[in-house]
Simulated assay, not measured.
Amino acid sequence: MADKRQRARVQGSWAKQLPKPQRPAAPQSQSANAVSASWGIHRQTTSGNVEFQQPIKQVRDVPSEKVIDQAGDYEISHGPSGVSRLRLVPRFLPAEEADWMFAKLLAELPWSQKTNFRQDEAYEEPRLTCWFGELPYTYARSTMAANTKWHPLLLKLRRAVSEASGGRGGDERFNSLLCNLYRDGHDSIGWHSDDEASLGRQPVIASLSLGDSRVFSLRKKPPLEENGDFTYVERIKVPLGHGALLLMEGATQDDWQHQVAKEYHDRGPRINLTFRSIFPEPQGHRPGTKLHFTDRQTDMNATN
């Protein structure tokens, strides 16, 4: 009997132990997996430890700013509202002719500083303006009265610009003119589009520059899913010198914004003549309202 117990103890010490039964892991819900994935969590199933990993972010490049400084016609975009076009004529006016025209308009036009309104607060535009046209022009909740007393030199320039932009014979393409005087580099105009309802759909704006050079900048309006973020939009810079003519055509006012930013180094006065056509306000529109109401548009005359 003792021998049997001894042999049993010896045999038991050699025998392999059976593996202990493992408790099944609790099933993880689908929502928890989704949360883990969204926060970049990786679970190690072998050790049961949780390892946190940084989520993968999409890398986006900010487009480089393009420069247009040579004469020509440019299709700057093909959507979403259609084809946007610019036409640049850097030497539309000869230098000597532009010199005396600049001096005459600077001295003889009825320049004044317009007061606008934003969020029920008044502010003065950082430049001087005057208006010519048979109809009033309203923007930034402030109206410029109709003025049919065109300066003779402005009538001459309107004919020349009208012909250059497609007008023929005595048919004037433009019936109105907004004049801007930038007294120095501190004067400016903020990001905006010339898309008031009174301008009609896809207006043609002809901009004639006299005096010191300033940079005219454009930026593409972001798609709606960007929620007004202009970080990754296309940008264009157009240096406008003495006697230069720039035409904005097609969908430029629908799909792009433009500005003349402040330049704090020495800048002399500059006159900008912006020819356009004004029509009676469409029925149902308040004076000065935009044709397209979207969150991606900024106030027309926000200061920099």
Rank of each mutant, 00 (worst) to 15 (best):
A8K: 15
Q11L: 15
A15S: 12
A26L: 15
Q30W: 13
Q30V: 15
S31P: 00
A34R: 14
V35C: 05
V35K: 05
S38A: 11
W39D: 07
G40T: 00
I41R: 07
Q54S: 00
V62E: 10
D73Y: 09
R85V: 09
V89P: 00
P90D: 08
F92P: 05
P94H: 06
P94M: 03
D99H: 13
A103K: 14
K104G: 06
L106K: 08
E108D: 12
P110M: 07
N116D: 11
N116S: 10
D120R: 13
Y123M: 05
Y123D: 01
E125H: 04
P126Q: 07
P126D: 10
L128K: 11
C130I: 02
P136N: 07
A145F: 06
A146D: 02
W150N: 02
H151F: 06
L154I: 01
K156N: 13
R159V: 01
R159G: 06
A164F: 00
G167I: 08
G169K: 04
G170I: 08
G170M: 09
R173F: 11
L177W: 04
N180M: 05
Y182W: 03
R183P: 01
W191C: 03
W191K: 05
D195I: 02
S198W: 00
L199R: 04
G200P: 04
Q202D: 15
A206P: 02
L208T: 10
D212I: 07
L218I: 08
P223K: 09
D229E: 12
T231D: 05
Y232P: 04
R235C: 12
I236S: 04
I236V: 15
K237D: 12
K237G: 03
L247H: 03
T252I: 09
D254S: 09
D254H: 12
K262N: 09
K262P: 12
Y264I: 13
H265R: 14
G268H: 09
N272R: 00
L273I: 09
L273Y: 02
S277Q: 05
P280W: 01
E281Q: 15
E281H: 11
E281V: 14
P282T: 08
D299H: 14
A302V: 06
N304P: 11
